[in-house]
């Protein structure tokens, strides 16, 4: 009897754990399937290339695509260099046991765990009310409200803060994967530490830096909370043309279409299609990051 029980248990564990694993796959399939079925008929070239019409119940999402694109570009320009420099400091200069290095690591880990909405509030308080309002006071004596309000610059910088840990971690990983032999070769030729970092370590970690950038972009493109108060707009008749302009964004667009639209039923197709575009975008970014990582691994294992 006991023997049979053990045998049954032995059979049921793989079955049960397999089912759990399959459940995850199922969820992905349902999400993808549902989005494709709901959005496919709305998706068209016109949908991708025109703005919303008729009180946002018709038309496309072109401004939101462009807004998302600009957001992640400005975010990367701000975040990737800072993240890379931090990673260089942590892996090359800081002594691994030093209190400063530990503090930075602790801060990076904490930053990674802060909820996105808190970043949004921080952006509102710091960038808009402190930096922006301060800039207005200096530039126009407070007469003109230009920087002290939500815009694409503040939203991008807030997003850059959110994605900073992602960049730091992947760049550090890539720097650590550079073989010690190469650093030694450079130093033994009379190169300084900085020359070695600039000419040997960084060129050999370029794929890691790219991976970090892509993962940050894919994370940033999917977040709504940080830009809620810092720059995203409900509807704009024109594209942003300056850093002090507001912008439309895909994730935010989905949010307002589902919660703020005067006729939620009429916009269902648009909601699905927008979600589909956003999903395809982030999946594509994640896949390219995975591909780059794979390339790093095969190269370091040479």
């Amino acid at each position: 009897m006991r023997k049979l029980g053990r045998k049954l248990l032995g059979l049921s564990i793989p079955l049960f754990s397999g089912l759990c694993a399959f459940f995850i796959v199922l969820i992905v399939l349902i999400v993808m399937g549902e989005t494709i079925i709901g959005g496919w008929s709305t998706l068209s070239w016109e949908f991708l290339s025109t703005g919303p019409k008729e009180g946002m119940t018709e038309g496309g999402i072109y401004p939101a695509i462009i807004g998302t694109f600009l957001l992640v570009v400005i975010m990367s320009i701000a975040g990737v260099p800072i993240g890379t420099i931090t990673a260089i400091y942590l892996s090359e200069y800081a002594s691994q046991k030093s209190i400063l290095a530990r503090m930075i690591r602790f801060a990076v880990n904490t930053l990674a765990g802060v909820p996105a909405i808190v970043f949004g509030l921080f952006g509102l308080g710091f960038f808009i009310q402190f930096v922006g309002t301060g800039m207005d006071k200096v530039l126009s004596g407070g007469a003109e409200l230009k920087w002290g309000q939500p815009n694409i610059l503040w939203a991008s910088l807030t997003m850059a803060l959110l994605t900073l840990p992602v960049v730091i971690v992947s760049v550090e990983e890539a720097i650590k994967a550079v073989p010690r032999e190469l650093r030694e070769a450079s130093l033994a030729l009379g190169a300084t530490k900085w020359e070695t970092i600039r000419k040997v370590v960084l060129p050999n970690s370029i794929t890691g830096i790219l991976t970090g950038g892509i993962l940050a972009v894919s994370r940033g493109a999917g977040e709504v909370a940080p830009i809620l108060f810092t720059g995203a707009a409900y509807f704009l008749p024109h594209l942003p043309s300056a850093l002090s302009d507001q912008f439309m964004e895909l994730g935010y667009h989905i949010y307002i279409m589902t919660t703020q639209s005067p006729d939620v039923e009429a916009t269902r197709g648009i909601q699905y299609a927008t979600t589909l575009v956003l999903l395809v975008l982030t999946f594509a970014l994640n896949f390219s990051a995975m591909f780059l990582r794979y390339k790093i691994r095969t190269r370091t294992a040479r």
């Binding site: 073989p179 190469l182 030694e184 130093l187 033994a188 030729l189 009379g190």
Partner: peptide, 13 residues
């Protein structure tokens, strides 16, 4: 290190 160069066990081009 410029004056005293070094060749390593594993070639490291």
């Amino acid at each position: 290190r410029k004056k005293v160069g070094m060749i390593f066990q594993r070639s490291n081009p």
